[in-house]
Amino acid sequence: MSATTQSPKSPARKPPATETASSVKMIRLMGSVSLICGLLIVTTYRGTLAPIQRNQEIIMKETVAELLPGVERQVVYGVQPAGGITVLKNLDYAGPRLFAGYDASGALLGVVLEASDRGYADVIRTMYAYSPSKQAITGFKVVELKETPGLGDKITSDPAFLANFRHLDVRLNADGTSTAHPVTTVKQGTKKNPWEVDAISGATISSRAVGRALDKSTRDLLPIVNRHLGRIEKGE
């Protein structure tokens, strides 16, 4: 201790031998502290891994159940970069995920997908239910947003706005490579086509972000869902 707690006033006169000794001591100490810290972190990581995954699964399951009423069983698929799909055991997946929901008889109710885009304050994350039989979006939920309270956050509650997503036409084009009509956001009260989203006046930016997010997600993912529909229906 005395070697290392020398007064800093006399560093120049410190003999070199002491310095190497204290360096060794420093490395030894830092090493052991790192070891303890590492052990603590690893222990916590192992201990919390299961509850964290359970939490994430519960939240996802609840959201899917909300978007697909009557769902009894869920299967999660991950979309591979090449366009294939695999069943996921773990929700941690870098690519897009498809949450397929089945009723008590095992029939496919619909597929829940994620969509996100930049809103006014930050990225708005949403999930929506897609019904392959109706070729339409049948449910919609905002899962994460930081929009201005009272204005942009109306997209989570405005009944007229949410009514857009009870049946939003997202049918595919003839060759099944994209949606036939892009999802577009229009000014409040001017919705004419079933693929248009009626914006909230006063929350135009957030409404448009939702429209853009859905458009991008449906165009990219719905062709994949339809290509693998046979597999998804069987739940494998």
């Binding site: 290392t4 204290s22 001591k25 420093m26 830092m30 502290v33 810290c37």
Partner: peptide, 13 residues
């Protein structure tokens, strides 16, 4: 903890 590395140690902890 040697004086020279105390801040590094604290931050690690």
């Amino acid at each position: 903890v040697p004086k020279q590395v105390r801040i590094a140690t604290y931050i690690l902890i």
